Simulated assay, not measured.
Amino acid sequence: MDTNYMTRVALVTGGSAGLGLALTRALAADGWHVITDGRSPEKFKEAELPDGVTTILGDLTDGDHREDLRIEVERHGRLDLLVHNASTLGPLPMKQLSGVDIADLTQMWRTNIGGPLVLTSLLLPWLRVADGVLLSISSDAAVNHYETWGLYGASKAALDHVTLTYGAETGLTAYAVDPGDMRTAMHQDAFPGEDISDRPLPETVVPSILTLLDQRPDSGRYRAEDFA
């Protein structure tokens, strides 16, 4: 495995919108080569991503798509940062746990936990050689309990656990990061018809994530605001 490339390489899932897009742009501007994915070619076209970004269309729950991502990492020869950003709120409108069925659970688990878990395993060889960082985007719903957020919160709590266990098992630096509320399409979906213009844009959260990566504290769960 040849890692003698000077350019740092990151893989950010779900980079066509929201925090994933903002982080992809910021890393590219800082000289990283960023591999990112998403399901919508229209969103990527609207995003007008800069040079230094490779986009791969597909769904993280699909094995062939995950293999495409692995092949792209192999082509670049290294991986310094893996960011699990892509996620789903599950069926909309969001509902109380008493209304959740197995199909809802399966959809949520495959996207928010299953995809990230198996993708991490695929990419471990490159992360280990580069002494890279594994970072998963969490939520305060992973530790607090809000009506209708139970299924999503449980999936994020599980993602936190999986991420930090990977760190414990491999020695990689691993972070679960709660970005706080943001003005994104996903957040709007959670509050249909409500004005969420008071929430900060995802671009305001990115500097905190970059500071975390720069300071590289011990593995653990952090809030973005801790690094503001």
Rank of each mutant, 00 (worst) to 15 (best):
H161V: 03
G167H: 08
A154C: 05
V83L: 08
W126H: 12
R110C: 12
E147R: 15
Y152E: 13
E169K: 10
Q96S: 15
L97C: 10
I102M: 12
V162Q: 11
V129Q: 15
W126D: 13
N144F: 00
L124P: 03
G167C: 09
A103T: 06
D160C: 13
H84S: 12
T120S: 11
L164N: 09
S121H: 14
W149I: 07
P93H: 15
R78C: 11
G132A: 08
G90V: 09
E169H: 05
S87V: 13
M94I: 10
L134F: 00
E169L: 11
K95M: 12
T111S: 14
A168E: 13
A174K: 06
A157S: 14
V143C: 04
L92Q: 14
L82G: 12
I113F: 05
T88K: 05
L134G: 10
D140L: 07
G99L: 13
G171R: 04
L172P: 04
L89V: 07
M94P: 05
S121C: 04
D104T: 03
D140W: 00
S155N: 07
W149D: 08
T148P: 01
D178H: 14
A86I: 14
P93C: 15
R78I: 10
L159Y: 00
T165S: 13
V143P: 01
I137Y: 00
L119M: 12
L124W: 00
P125I: 10
T148W: 02
W149P: 02
L151K: 02
L164V: 09
P125E: 12
A176F: 02
T170P: 05
G114M: 01
T173Q: 12
K95S: 15
W109S: 10
G115T: 04
D101V: 11
W126T: 06
A176C: 08
D104G: 04
D140R: 01
A174H: 01
T163Y: 01
L124F: 02
I113G: 10
P91W: 02
R78G: 09
W109N: 08
S138A: 06
L123F: 04
Y166C: 13
L97V: 15
L124G: 07
A103F: 00
M94N: 12
H84D: 13
R128M: 00
V100F: 00
Y146L: 11
A86S: 15
A176T: 10
P116S: 04
P125V: 10
W109A: 12
A86H: 15
D131Y: 00
V133K: 02
N85G: 07
L124I: 07
N144T: 15
E147H: 13
H161A: 11
A142D: 01
T163Q: 11
N144Y: 04
D160R: 06
D80K: 02
G171N: 05
A154W: 02
V133T: 14
P91V: 14
T88P: 10
T120L: 03
P125D: 09
Q96N: 12
A130P: 00
P116A: 03
A130C: 10
D104A: 10
V177K: 07
S138Y: 00
D80M: 06
V129S: 15
A174C: 09
D80E: 07
L127Q: 00
T111I: 09
L92A: 09
S155A: 14
R128D: 02
L123I: 01
L79Q: 08
G167Y: 01
G167K: 04
V100C: 14
